[in-house]
Structures are given as C-alpha cells and as structure tokens.
Amino acid sequence: MSKETTSRINVLKTYKLYIGGAFPRTESGRYDRQTNAKGDLVANICRASRKDFRNAMVAARKAQRGWAARSAFNRSQILYRMAEMLESRSATFERALEDAAGYKKKDAAAEVATAIDRLVWYAGWCDKFTQLFGNTNPVASAHFNFTFPEAMGVVTVLAPKSAPLLGLISTFAPVIVGGNSTIVVVDNDAPTIAIELAEVLATSDLPGGVVNILTGRRDELTPHIGSHMDLDAIFAVGSDKDEERALSIAATESIKRTKFIDDRSASEWRDADAQSPYMILPFIEFKTAWHPIGGVAGGGGAY
C-alpha cells in the first residue's frame, strides 16, 4: 500500500446572498469573480438580479412591521448582540480585510474595532432617538398634541465602495435603528466580507428580513430599485451625478424619499463624524397626534 500524504486541502466557502434570514444563491445563476490584490481568486460571488431584489423586497416588507413593533429596548439589545457576535469573530474579519481587501494589519484591526464600537453606539440610540426627535407641542387650543418619529418602512442602502465592513455597518445601522428594514446592495472590491457579516447578523437574534444583503452590480440593479413601487426610501452612498439623477427620477413615481451622501475613504469612515443620530433622521417619518383635553371642573394648569 502506498503512503498517503498528510496535508489537507482547505474547505472553500460558497458565498451566497442573504434574504429573509436565509442564504439563497442568486436565482439568476450568475456570478462575479472576486480577486485579491494579487489577482488570485477569492470567491465566486453571487451577481444578484432584479428578481433577487424583488424577493428581498418581499422579505423586507414582511419583516418590517414586526421589527418596528418590537420594543426599542429589544431592538437595542439585538444591535448590541450584533456587536457581541462581531467582537467574537474580530480575528476572522481582520484576516478577511487583509486577505480579501488588501488592508494592512493595523488598518484591518482599526476598522473591525470601529465597526464593533459603532454598532454599540447605534444600539444605544434605539430607545433614545424618539426623545431626541419627538416632542409634545404646546398648541393654543385645548388639545394634547405630540410628535414622534416612526419608521419609514423599507429602505434600500446602496453601500459604500470603501470600508467593506465599516461602511456597511455605518450605513445600515442608523436605518434599522429607526425600525426600518433594509436591503443592502454591495458592489465593492471585497463583497465576501458583506456575506461574512450576514453570518453575524443571522446569529444575532435579528429577525430574518430586517437586513437583506445582495452582492452584485449596482448599475444593473439601480433602475429596478428606483422604480420599485413598494420601496419607501433609498439611501445611496457615493452616487455619481448620473446615478443620482436616474435614481431621483425613478423615485418620483411613488414619491420615494432619497438620501445621497458622499463616500469616504476607509479611514474617514472611522472618523467620529461618520456616526450621528442625524443619520437616523432621513429614514423616519414624523407623526403628529391630537386629542382634546377635557375641561374638568376645578382643573387647571397649575396648582
């Protein structure tokens, strides 16, 4: 009997999409090649189609009401849980940033650390932004009147090109803090990291469908995103003029809300001003409610 070699071969991971809490392949069967800085193949990643987006839209819509209906405290704990899960996998993400995205060790560690801290930071906003943005209104008539923020609904995030981990977290976290569900479209040089992150989300008690992640080609998907009649808002990072114009025009059909912001460099995404409660603001609706105040005999404003 000949002698067997002892070396073993790695098990490669198949990277799929993240829709409704599950990891389906793209229905289109198409793929894009992700290579590292040296040009070696990292993975064949899914090239999401219009149909995948529509499936994600259905999942996001289904999940949104339940997510918004959860207590703010519960949403807060779930975002915090994401941070916990990310912390326990920090070494994995650091290595992934180095191997797949060509980060230096120091930068990889900084991005992962900031990403975890940012999740913790936004986790804390879940039960606070309502008080920051809402208020009672001293109307001149005998009514109790108050204004409070509500979720907008389903928001598509066109994620930054840079900072494959932190860019994602910095953009979808403020969206879901407000009770929205989201479809994150990832078109960057290391989309495998987004799917690694999906594995974190899938094990963080986050209800399926609250965050959906599609890898693929942004320019191919944006026309369908802009014109989808059930989508409430679009949060686009780093759009050029043409994309901004095309999305804005398509958005008019159902009066979608749009928010365009510039992309940042990977290190700028780590800056303190890359997180703000005012990132929550574009994705909430203000609701104002009135009710008459009765005139109880002997009642009055002051005693």
């Binding site: 208020n135 209104n137 001293p138 109307v139 001149a140 008539s141 009514h143 009147n145 204004t147 409430d232 159902s254 009066i255 809300r257 609706e285 203000f286 609701k287 104002t288 409610a289 009135w290 009710h291 008459p292």
Partner: peptide
C-alpha cells in the same frame, strides 16, 4: 402624518404637519 383623535382639522404653528407616502415629505410647523 397627522392623526386626529376625537377631533379633526386642527392646526397650530407648534404642531408639525405633513405626509407619508405620496402625500409628500417634510414637515411644516414646530
């Protein structure tokens, strides 16, 4: 955007007014 409970069509400068969905976006008041 505006819910009137046991009343209707009340307006006040301190009270934000504006719509959801195809009723537009942005608030006026307050």
């Amino acid at each position: 955007g505006v819910i009137w409970g046991n009343t209707f069509n009340k307006f006040d400068p301190t009270s934000p007014f504006g719509g959801y969905k195809e009723s537009g976006f942005g608030r006026e008041g307050g």
